[in-house]
């Protein structure tokens, strides 16, 4: 078999979720023999990302670069056509992307163009055509087999396929970089346009990859109080998360939401303050290694998944933690 990884890049490097997609290829029996990585975009950062890709993972044998302004923004319409075109030429047995907002947007569309049922949000690989994915907000696990003739199209949950911490820079292992011939690319231009993206800029680690996540719920009461969570996160070098209730109440922006329809996280330590533990929230953090819950309601469902529970007032507990916790190294 041969695998195509549809990768995202940012600032001249492959993004972490796409590195997880590469990890997933190594779980496919004998499909890891030939891995091609597809990158698209334009300008110097694309080519920087391509050279990063060529040496970032020993399993990559080829980097395919689609250099065009069409792919400058992550619009699904041209991207899906690109994946379709590259598949028609390469005849891959598997196409894999991360289950990021990009992968979720593009891959099912590409799959439809190829007349294939994709398997999305995969958390486990049993064999080359059998995969495990959570259903019902993670309250059940479904093992599904792809029986079609076309390529097997997957999006993988990044937290289930951790990327190696340090990139391998064995120069001997460098993959070849080749340009995708776009002369026959017939994308109907102009049906969709990218307008803008607003991003919360901060110094904190990325929620999806952080070693520690400190999370707050509705009990924080307002945005001002939520700063307590941020202060604690800063002290621990942690990322900040929130429940849907906290996001809906306007305490924090939506990209901090942890849960079934928000971010899925699996840090070493997840600390939940004033989080009741709705199943939709638990779906987003249940794979964390150690879970701490602080809540004044001893019956809150969050305590059923917490390794360490503390029944108490978070407005007393957090200041005490801030005072007593050691400074981050």
């Amino acid at each position: 078999g041969s695998t195509l990884v549809v990768a995202e890049h940012d600032g001249g490097a492959i993004r972490a979720p796409s590195l997880s997609a590469l990890t997933a290829t190594t779980c496919l029996p004998d499909s890891g023999s030939s891995v091609s990585l597809l990158l698209a975009g334009s300008g110097p950062s694309l080519h920087q990302a391509a050279s990063h890709a060529a040496s970032c993972h020993p399993s990559i044998s080829q980097v395919l670069v689609a250099d065009s302004d069409t792919f400058k923004s992550p619009l699904a319409e041209p991207w899906a056509k690109l994946v379709h075109m590259v598949q028609q030429r390469g005849g891959y047995s598997h196409i894999i992307a991360a289950s990021s907002s990009f992968g979720k947007n593009v891959m099912p569309r590409a799959a439809a163009l190829l007349d294939v049922s994709p398997v999305t949000d995969v958390t486990g690989i049993s064999d080359s055509h059998t995969f495990v994915r959570p259903i019902y907000a993670g309250n059940a696990l479904c093992t599904v087999r792809y029986t079609g003739a076309g390529p097997c199209i997957l999006t993988i949950r990044a937290t289930s396929f951790p990327a190696p911490q340090k990139s391998v820079d064995s120069k001997s292992n460098e993959a070849s970089i080749s340009q995708v011939d776009l002369s026959t690319f017939d994308e109907d231009l102009g049906k969709s346009r990218y307008i803008s993206q607003t991003t919360q800029e901060d110094e904190r680690p990325d929620l999806g990859n952080a070693r520690i996540v400190v999370s707050g719920g509705r009990a924080l009461k307002n945005a001002e109080n939520f700063k307590l969570i941020e202060n604690l996160a800063e002290k621990l070098g942690a990322a900040v998360g929130a429940t849907r209730a906290a996001v809906d109440a306007g305490f924090v922006p939506n990209e901090l939401q942890v849960g079934q329809t928000g971010k899925i996280v699996a840090p070493e330590l997840y600390m939940a303050f004033g989080v009741s533990g709705a199943i939709q929230h638990i779906a987003g953090m249940r794979d964390s290694k150690v879970i701490v819950a602080v809540n004044n309601d001893a019956d809150a469902p969050i305590f059923q998944v917490a390794d360490y529970g503390l029944v108490g007032d978070l407005f007393e507990v957090i200041p005490e933690l801030l005072e007593k916790l050691p400074e981050k190294k």
Binding site: S101, F102, R193, S196, Q197, T199, Q200, G208, N254, E255
Partner: peptide
């Protein structure tokens, strides 16, 4: 306006 991993993305569609 689309909810994406790192914020809000705005697209315009025919």
């Amino acid at each position: 306006d689309r909810e994406v991993d790192d914020g809000i993305e705005t697209v315009s569609l025919n």
